[in-house]
Design a protein around this nucleic acid. Structure first.
Lengths: 148, 148
DNA sequence: CAGAATAGGTTTCTAATGGTGACTTGATGC
DNA sequence: GCATCAAGTCACCATTAGAAACCTATTCTG
């Protein structure tokens, strides 16, 4: 083993990390991007930014998230050092999730994303409706062409 | 039909859009978030921000994307009015994708995300390694407990 | 003239992921 | 003695992502 990884253009992992480029598939940055570009991550970190929260509290706030996805999301956020988990030996057991300093820096960059979604949604819905109307025409054209 | 949608707390769609909240599952903002919080979207918009590009040009730049995912991503970006597509009747046909003004505003908010991934990846990898080491111990403990 | 290449896709098949709902554990109130 | 709470897990099915082949039309290469 010479420490060289396939797909990094002959670079070692540490060299690749010194020249990070999300457009290179083997670059670890790609993993990071894949990890954080996720609906539930954005919503969970958005809530934890306001202070620690408990499991079912998060579940109630994030309408539509399943227990499975929440525990999965929290587990991988914890693994990546973005949130921390503390369990209290109460009855029933209480678990508190809070954001780490690292997670807080990510949460900062995620805010504009949520804001963009909330402010530009109407423009997107309009564009979508227009596209779908045009699509109906296209399909009608195709049916006419087929019949001919 | 009174224009009321289920899950919006008795609000009409237009009322929900006036009070957007990504934490409400039926809010269209959630769709927008789900749409834009995507690895390929981040990478494609990041490239188109620098000027129009052609299909295979994008494919070559974004290492690891399949033709299917690229055409799918571009199609839904076009549907949502974030990129525009122009085909030229050359031989073989040439197709040029460019970012729309709306897409440009989104691309702006996506830059910090890519930058975060590129600058914090080492911290994440460290945290992950530490977590996995601890996990090995946990599993060893469980095996010991099982044997007892 | 056969075969390859090029551009921009679509189709097909499989592997991984996401969501649903039932189940767990242990104490506590009814 | 039964239901409830918290914080999950488990088994199952539906959707999706990814890999690889194929398509159409034209031109280039041997």
């Amino acid at each position: 083993m010479d420490g060289t990884l396939l797909g990094l253009g002959g670079k070692t992992l540490s060299e690749a990390v010194q020249d990070p480029n999300a457009y290179v598939s083997a670059c670890p940055t790609r993993q990071a991007l894949d990890r954080i570009a996720d609906k539930w991550t954005v919503l969970v970190l958005g809530l934890l930014e306001g202070g620690p929260m408990r499991f079912n509290q998060l579940r109630r706030e994030i309408e539509g998230i399943s227990q499975k996805m929440l525990s999965q999301t929290l587990k991988s956020l914890e693994r990546d050092g973005l949130v921390s988990r503390r369990a209290f030996a109460t009855v029933p057991v209480t678990v508190e999730y809070s954001i780490t300093p690292l997670g807080a820096t990510l949460a900062q960059t995620l805010v504009p994303l949520r804001v963009w979604a909330e402010t530009h949604i109407t423009r997107m819905l309009e564009a979508r409706a227009a596209y779908d109307r045009a699509g109906d025409d296209r399909m009608a054209d195709e049916r006419t062409a087929d019949a001919a």
